[in-house]
Amino acid sequence: MKIVVCLKRVLDTQERVEIAPDGKRLVSTGLDYVMNTHDECAVEEAIRIKEAKGGQVTVLSLGPSGATETIREAIAMGADEGLLLEAEGDEEAWGPKSTASALAEALKGLEFDLVFFGLESGDGSHHQVGLAVAEALGLPAVDGVKKIDFQDGKIVVRRAVELGEEVFELEPPAVLTLVDGMNRPRHPSLRGIMLAKRKEIKTIKVAPREEPLRLIQLRKPPERAGGEILGEGKGAIPKLLEKLHEAGLVR
């Protein structure tokens, strides 16, 4: 099974992020970049499939030259090859459409059975790139996959929906976007890190081709009202039941 994992480096979400005074950008006090968490799970999943069934895992990332670090991190975990699409211009010039078309273009030059994406990126949260790439390549796609199985030559994927799950059967090639939490990504070992260090990362320069999304205004969600304390221990149960009845949550 040949798998390409598309991943993005994002600002460490553990750092404080605030809305800039102009309301059009996020500013972060942090300076450290990490692999997007959904993407980390996608890398882990791809490596597990390779370990179980053989094959190859290639990571593909669009970003600044420093994104080689994130690609190498995936290689240190167990991916085989990396390809960087070195993005020209400011980050703001790169909307999801431009990103998707550049990735789709690069994917045309790669051999694969499956392409993995993370569900969405932790910074922009557009949740568009994976599906837009599938569209551009004319491939079937399942969004928000939480489990992948292989049965009789078919790929069986599950995605969570309200009140249950949807099960799809696919034949490669296909595009899947994977959700954080479907597995526990491994730590790269130091041996893996040293191997990745020696790996050459192929780099192709790309320029944005589509108009970016125009961001009008960022706003903080309204402060949530504080909870109401109904009592303590068993004594709180009658009051709690009353409230639940009022809200129509129990009958």
Binding site: L31, V34, T68, E69, P188, I193
Partner: peptide, 19 residues
């Protein structure tokens, strides 16, 4: 890091640090 400064470390060191 709290503030920007030249990096004593290379890519592989930063990956190791996160790990």
């Amino acid at each position: 890091e709290m503030y920007p400064m030249y990096s004593f470390f290379s890519e592989e060191h930063r990956i190791l640090k996160r790990m």
